[in-house]
Amino acid sequence: MSSRIEILNDGGYRSDGRRQYELRSIDIDMSPQGTADGCAVVSHGLTQVQVCVFGPREARKRAETLHDRAVLNVEVGVLPFSAGERRRRGRADRRILELAASIKSTFEPVIQTSLYPRSQIDIFVSVLAQDGGLLQACINATSVALASAGIALGDLVCAVSGGVHGTFPLLDLSALEEGDLPNVTVAITPRSGKVTLVTLETRLHVDRFGEVFARACEAGRVIHTEMRRAVRARTSKLVDAMGAGTKGTGEEDVERDVLMSEINDF
């Protein structure tokens, strides 16, 4: 396959017409679904992932509760029609379990679980369509879904994948590129600049790693602005909707707002 398709042509374009560091279009939908406390559907190009968050709520298994913090439960379902080749994966598939484990370990340090003792937070991930960058899409969607559920987070976690073609680093790999290139997925918390996840499933030359990693961290910040915009848009829509029904209290809000603006002096 790699012999016929150029990953990066002489003009500096990739097989889908992107530049080296160009990300695929990202789309974030936070409209509520069913009884979930928070949900998000995030797409990176043709990869689409839906995440529903329930909780914090009473743990289903009492033996698993912790007296000082919440328990995270991540379940990943890959829909049979999500990939090009129709295939049914069980819940116990090793790849899926690993995906769930990496999502869980990414978010455990970020969610302020000590605020919710003896409870459980359920994160249900469904992969709707796959075209490379599955882990990054799962992490970004989970991040937004947790924010929409009103769960306390240290920061929004942003993930992006990167690879190396020859000596050129590429970002946000599609399925085609992912199959051919050594790739790495990096998740960062942009405010503190901390890295919560780095995974390599293939081998990558150590001299190339540094540059890919640095580019991925930069790209994470770009994705962060998109995520922040989506969360803010959703929040302001809900705040406006709440305000529309209660015009009587409008004056109070204005007064409070004047007070708030004083904070800006600091």
């Binding site: 302020q112 924010a147 306390a152 987070l153 240290g154 920061d155 929004l156 918390t189 942009p190 405010r191 503190s192 922040r228 969360v231 803010r232 929040t235 302001s236 705040v239 406006d240 305000g243 409008g250 809000d253 204005v254 409070r256 707002d257 708030m260 904070i263 600091f266």
Partner: peptide, 29 residues
């Protein structure tokens, strides 16, 4: 420009912890 109430999202700095105390929905770093 947005209007009545100040909105925020996770990880956004609000103010300095010297002048203010933190309440629910915030943390100090």
């Amino acid at each position: 420009a947005e209007g009545t109430q100040k909105l925020t999202c996770p990880g956004e700095p609000i103010t300095s912890s010297h002048a203010f105390m933190r309440g629910h929905g915030t943390y100090v770093d």
